[in-house]
Design a protein around this nucleic acid. Sequence first.
DNA 1: TATCGGCTGCTAAACGTTTAGGATGGTGCA
DNA 2: TGCACCATCCTAAACGTTTAGCAGCCGATA
Lengths: 359, 359
Amino acid sequence: MRRKLTLKDVSRESGLSTFTVSRALAGAEGVSKESREAVLRVAEEMGYVPNLAAQKLRGVASSTIAVITAGTSNAYYLDMMNGIQAVAQDMDQTVVLTDIAIGGVYDIGRERQTIQRLLEGRVGGVISTLTLLPESVKRLEDWEIPIVFVDSSPPEELPYVPSVTTDNYNASLLVGAHLQSHAFQDWLLLVYPPIWSSRKERERGLRDAAAKAGATIEVVEAGNNAASASKALRDCLGRRGGRLPDILIAGNNPILLGAFQVARERNTIIPDNMAMVCFDDFPFAPYLDPPVTVLNERSEEIGRLSAHMLTEIMSAQIEARKAGKPAAPIYTNEHQLQVPVDLVVRRSCGCPDPTRSRS
Amino acid sequence: MRRKLTLKDVSRESGLSTFTVSRALAGAEGVSKESREAVLRVAEEMGYVPNLAAQKLRGVASSTIAVITAGTSNAYYLDMMNGIQAVAQDMDQTVVLTDIAIGGVYDIGRERQTIQRLLEGRVGGVISTLTLLPESVKRLEDWEIPIVFVDSSPPEELPYVPSVTTDNYNASLLVGAHLQSHAFQDWLLLVYPPIWSSRKERERGLRDAAAKAGATIEVVEAGNNAASASKALRDCLGRRGGRLPDILIAGNNPILLGAFQVARERNTIIPDNMAMVCFDDFPFAPYLDPPVTVLNERSEEIGRLSAHMLTEIMSAQIEARKAGKPAAPIYTNEHQLQVPVDLVVRRSCGCPDPTRSRS
DNA sequence: TATCGGCTGCTAAACGTTTAGGATGGTGCA
DNA sequence: TGCACCATCCTAAACGTTTAGCAGCCGATA
């Protein structure tokens, strides 16, 4: 391997001081055009690659943002990540991906450990896809590292912390109204645990909607994955003596999958024997049997918005630091974003499919 | 913010030298039990957090591995990432995720830039989901950074570079044989570009299989996403005067989606008017209309295997470095892994669905 | 000519770790 | 007692950058 080159090597080779080389490479001022060009040429020729660790140590602002997830195999994360990546690229930020689940289930020890890791790495900012412990958020605050929650809310004790969420309450009201129009009386919500805080709003909205519709609603909690969902549903139907609800509302995608599994086992015909709707649209939803009615959460947009918000906070912070100001991240109430949701009606709720004439 | 604490602070507070503190925190020897405990206690009390940048600068082995993707919204990446994450966690490695696509399509400039970034960050190892430029791989070699390709092969010029792939050629033979049993004569392969090198083996296998079956096969290339796939298919059917093939083979998931879109537009009934099979299983495949026959690539396993392989190479490297040996990564022929694939027969190929009696 | 200001570029210190090389004191042994 | 040896711990020098502080030079001005 050719020896690793340092600034000093470029300095020696170009006959200019490390100061000049550093400024030239950084594109900063205080260097004449000729010197700059000379430096760039020499650096290029020698194959010099700067050392980020040294820069960081010296106090250059961190350019990595961490995304915290908890291991669900939910397709909508893909879109969200795409959104985040897209703006991270534009902003010249590196994305580190962390998973605070062990074997697919959230683990509190893993959360602590992960936060510790991120502090050690002095990340520039954090995006979390689920509500974290207050303790975790406070540690980040201590270190002046901004965080934004995406598709989840901050811990209740710290309501001022930024978040980008879908308007889950109104979304639920929206489904609720639609279910009312079908005159369903017996609703069943099959849903993931409340660490993913969207759960709470979704449940609340549906309960209110059910009350308004004069319907009953049963809420069944499962783990955030298909296997757990199908088990929970099987148990629930067992308790009900096999009586199907009029409508099954799946809290998200993996849970819908679990429900489909159970439906197939029992040869349940959807929507004739039991209708279904689901939170979060996904690419294959229109092609399922039957096509499923869905609340379309704009996950890519949410991802983009959150990354955008985060990088803005980070930039403001860097400006402040330059000006010698205190550099804690500044959160305003513009940092609480809600994006609306639309109901995409397909056949699983009992409506005729608008996009296809059934053979 | 409470002032940032350094080793020196812990040293002062505990009355022990930085040497001792460092060794104690690292769990290394040369420190008495009492000193160690004292150090740990004080560090804990003060809320000391080590600075990774400083460690790295000093030459501590990097503990981050980078995953390179090119922005496709393909659900199977999720599982692969889960596999990678799982072993990364075990090995105490941080995962950084990079996307060398711009707006969803591969970009060569972005590839170069990304490699540069990774070098600057002195990552410990790289996993790539697509074939990179020889130039990129060579740069990593220069810097003694190991790389393993997953679900893709190394550039042809560098065949010794590790990879974990599915046995795509035999997989294609497998589908081919099944298609032959259906006596399909007119095959159409709709497929993504060859940067994702699995494309080549898949195509080769199918061509061989078609020849053997005495069938004709047309290969249509699309971009690696649904929109592009449906456009390509529409164009192709146009060229064919609307004549459908007996069987459409979708190169992967997003492409299958594109095909479904076209089928719906034209009211094509699958498998009656045209049969379909697809590479890569996905959770909802059994519940589509019709359930789709699929080659089940074990993406989670592939992810795990690749991460495992990479971390092993990295460990060997660290050992070597400790022993004062040259520390270039060592690649053997055990680092070329192929995992088998199974054919999951459902209804879209024209078979009766084994798991469901059609109403 | 003397003075001044504006560029440009230098030297050297600092960032927070790890570790080579050495000092210290205690123990075992002859 | 004197000596060798060991475990423990210390001092100080790196690692590769950035940047405060200063110095030299040039041309403009009085």
